[in-house]
Computed example of a mutant assay.
Amino acid sequence: MEAKETKWLYETILSGPGMDEQVKFSFTASRKVILLLAEAIENGLKLDGSGLKESIGPIGTTELEQLKELLLEKSNLSLLANQLMKIK
């Protein structure tokens, strides 16, 4: 699927009823998984041309960045993540 088609698909799905509703959830995960999830979010936000980033826009990008920071903060991994970013 081309980026243009992928963008259209994501925009269609994300504009559906109830997609803007806030969801509160509680889960447990190892710090390893949290660190990997934060990295996956970070890498996903850097991908240009995939259609996903373009379809969520700046507000969605900001929300994902905030979620990543919250996950790192709650798992006491913020400092480690920042140090790893400096290594890259």
Results as ranks from 00 to 15, higher is better:
M1F: 08
K4A: 14
K4W: 07
E5C: 02
K7N: 02
W8A: 12
W8P: 00
L9A: 04
Y10H: 04
E11D: 08
E11I: 00
T12H: 05
P17L: 11
G18Q: 03
M19S: 13
D20Q: 14
V23A: 04
F25T: 08
S26L: 13
F27W: 05
T28D: 15
A29C: 15
A29F: 15
S30N: 09
V33M: 13
V33A: 14
I34C: 12
L35V: 01
L36K: 13
A38C: 05
A38L: 04
A40C: 04
A40S: 04
A40G: 02
N43V: 10
G44N: 13
L45K: 01
K46G: 15
K46Y: 09
D48F: 09
G49L: 10
G51E: 12
E54D: 05
G60M: 06
T61N: 06
T61G: 10
T62L: 09
T62D: 05
E63L: 14
L64N: 00
L64I: 08
L67K: 00
L67T: 04
L70I: 02
L70M: 03
L71H: 00
E73A: 08
K74D: 11
K74V: 07
S75R: 00
N76Y: 06
L77F: 08
S78P: 01
L79T: 13
L80H: 03
L84F: 07
L84Y: 08
K86L: 13
K86D: 11
